[in-house]
Design a binder for these strands. Structure first.
Length: 472
RNA sequence: GGCGCCGUACCCAAGUGGUAAGGGAGAGGUCUGCAAAACCUUUAUGCACCGGUUCGAAUCCGGUCGGCGCCUCCA
């Protein structure tokens, strides 16, 4: 790593680029909001996990020992404002005839399969909300003891008027909040932005998940799980918390209020938020049902990593437009990339341990600079391409730098290789026949065979070193 | 109403004061029997529009127009 480079990240708390300094030298506590498992993740959701993976890989590239915690929200949540609507898990269960637990399990598995296909490094700790109810209750007790709650209509509420810093992440102020509230207000709330810590009064029938608590049998409010589990695994103050931009105003704002009301300490130092994927100028969302899953991309013939490459093409803090045309461009680019790397492999003798210097070093350092500048992946990709196209660099050296960069890209370039397609006897005979035809200058016959082979999925290329073939 | 994001070539997309990265697509070329692949060259005197600041602005300030998100479960 180039001397004097420091990682700079855009902190949503304060809205500016800041140099990253961990609480404990050499170690990072990272919490990333995970999925609510009542449906498949869509590629918009996955964009955020890809961004977080780049962050995780970057931290590890910088030799930090990262403890990465991700929650799985397998408790049902309301589909609407506080006391209305239906539990999302219940809706899922009703549609499929499964229990809520089976639904949670099924979609949790599907989610982590997606992450695997996207080459997203698995979190150090994955924690399910339903397995941490006691942690949540304990935290709520502390919040209550510190005087931030009130109990009304069967539910325990967080009183935001008791927390002067409320809204600091989202640049909100309490006066505006009252004026701006347009949602039909829960009558029990003193302030429209108060939120429930623990429900005992639910208006759904057949609430499937219930636990005993000091406030009665019920279930936790949504926000409390992240506060409780992150504190459990990362301590009362930790380094980085990530999520999608949609979480800034409510979820993360409420998490901060709860956590800091309980501990009296600053909870998180750096907040990072990924912007949305949009399609023809509308966001992709589960409730709008305009969403595309990773599986459906595969059914259309794309590789999960095509989508990963696509996401790398835009900065994580900018909305990115999705279209199949652009995904095609990403796929072509990635295939070209794999091709180049595969050729490099063929050209390099793998015994090089000489130091990276000259142009190779220049490209690598540029990459590092762009990486540390708030994870500028588009620029990093540009460095990768400039490296690949630089003719002054020896193949083996080039390859080493490529693989070095790929520690962060996570495009699995290591696995790139020229495919050796073994032809069966019939095809081999055709190939030989074509060779003969060409020697005899019977090009009509030769071209005929080329078409024939293409129909079999084999592309023929005549090179100065003889004929070469590959799969279509 | 409040809080935010954005408008750069045919498409995607970097660039936050010093004269427009990269990818895809297109065009021309080298090579080839022809292709393919590869390689080379090429494609924005201009960054929504109008003012302003400055020696200098896509970049800063003000305004206009347009697109999007959050404020209700959501990445």
């Amino acid at each position: 790593m180039k001397q004097g480079l420091a990682l700079r990240l855009f902190n949503s708390l304060g809205r500016k680029l800041q140099e990253f300094t961990p609480i404990h030298p050499g170690k990072v506590g990272l919490y990333t909001c995970g999925p609510t498992v009542y449906n498949f993740a869509h590629i918009g959701n996955l964009k955020t996990y890809i961004f977080e993976d780049i962050l995780r890989r970057t931290l590890e590239y910088l030799k930090y020992d990262v403890t990465h915690v991700m929650n799985v929200t397998d408790v049902g949540h309301l589909s609407d404002d506080a006391d209305q609507g239906e539990d999302r898990m219940m809706i899922g269960a009703r549609k499929t005839g499964k229990t809520v637990w089976e639904i949670a399990d099924f979609f949790t598995n599907a989610f982590f399969r997606d992450l695997e296909h996207l080459h997203i490094v698995k979190p150090t700790i994955i924690c399910k909300a339903t397995e941490h109810i006691q942690d949540m209750i304990d935290l709520i007790v502390r919040i209550e003891k510190n005087g931030f709650t009130y109990f009304k209509g069967g539910n325990l509420y967080f009183d935001i008027s008791k927390f002067p810093d409320y809204g600091k992440l989202a640049n909100l102020n309490l006066a505006d909040l009252k004026a701006g509230a347009r949602i039909e207000v829960d009558e029990n709330k003193k302030n429209p932005h108060d939120f429930v810590l623990w429900f005992t009064q639910s208006k759904f029938e057949h609430q499937a998940m219930l636990w005993d608590s000091p406030w009665g049998r019920g279930y936790p409010g949504w926000h409390i799980e992240c506060s409780a589990m992150s504190i459990r695994y990362l301590g009362e103050t930790f380094d980085i918390h990530c999520g999608g931009v949609d979480h800034i105003q409510v979820h993360h704002t409420n998490e901060i209020a709860q956590a800091e009301a309980a501990t009296g300490k600053k909870w998180v130092n750096y907040w990072l938020h990924g912007e949305f994927l949009v399609t023809s100028n509308a966001k992709m969302s589960k409730s709008l049902e305009n969403f595309i899953t990773l599986n459906s991309l595969k059914e259309r013939g794309y590789d999960a990593l095509d989508y990963r490459y696509f996401c790398l093409g835009a900065h994580y803090r900018k909305q990115q437009n999705f279209s199949f045309e652009d995904l095609d461009a990403a796929r072509t680019a990635r295939n070209n990339l794999l091709d180049r790397v595969a050729r490099l492999k063929k050209q390099s003798d793998n015994d090089s341990s000489e130091p990276i210097a000259g142009n190779a070093l220049r490209h690598l350092e540029s990459f590092q600079e762009n990486l540390l500048n708030d994870l500028n992946m588009p620029k990093c990709l540009s460095d990768l391409w400039n490296l690949l196209k630089d003719e002054k660099i020896e193949p083996h050296l080039k390859l080493r730098v490529v693989l070095e960069m790929d520690k962060v890209f996570g495009l699995n370039l290591e696995a790139a290789h020229l495919e050796d397609v073994v032809l069966n006897d019939k095809l081999m005979r055709l190939l030989n026949e074509r060779d003969e035809a060409r020697i005899n200058k019977d090009y009509t016959r030769a071209d005929e065979i080329r078409v024939q082979l293409e129909d079999e999925g084999i592309i023929i290329e005549d090179t100065p070193d003889g004929v070469r073939w590959r799969r279509k």
